[in-house]
């Protein structure tokens, strides 16, 4: 089970139940490029604490010698028919001269 010998530690990486506050939710939201409103941020903090506490039980899983039987599946690098430029651009919000238009970079 979870090591609870150091009740002051709040870093989930040490094995203790993760404390999740609104600031931490905000940090992850920024990494994921998802803006949240205040109500959502507060609700997520509570829900994440509960869900991450449940995930703690993964600590009990034994380390296994995992042997993945993975092979690369490749095809010959030959030009094939694909979407036309018009088809590829058809769902874009904004295009110009056959290109996608994104928001300004800075």
């Amino acid at each position: 089970m979870t090591d609870t010998s150091d009740p002051d530690a709040d870093d989930a990486a040490t094995g203790d139940a993760p404390a999740v506050d609104a600031a931490e939710v905000d940090h992850v939201a920024e990494l994921a490029r998802v803006r949240l409103d205040d109500a959502e941020r507060e609700a997520f903090a509570d829900q994440f604490a509960e869900i991450l506490e449940y995930f703690e039980a993964l600590d009990e899983v034994p380390a296994l010698d995992r042997e993945e039987e993975l092979v690369n599946v490749m095809r010959a690098d030959e030009v094939e028919e694909g979407l036309t430029q018009a088809e590829a651009l058809a769902n874009a919000a904004e295009t110009e001269d056959g290109f996608f238009m994104g928001p300004k970079v800075s």
Binding site: V34, P103, K104, S106
Partner: peptide
């Protein structure tokens, strides 16, 4: 800018459960 626009697009386009799982 790009990052802000991206975050606002995703705030409006995704519902709560999708945001929860992405985060």
């Amino acid at each position: 800018n790009w990052n802000e626009s991206f975050a606002e697009t995703r705030e409006a386009g995704f519902g709560a459960e999708v945001k929860r799982r992405i985060l």
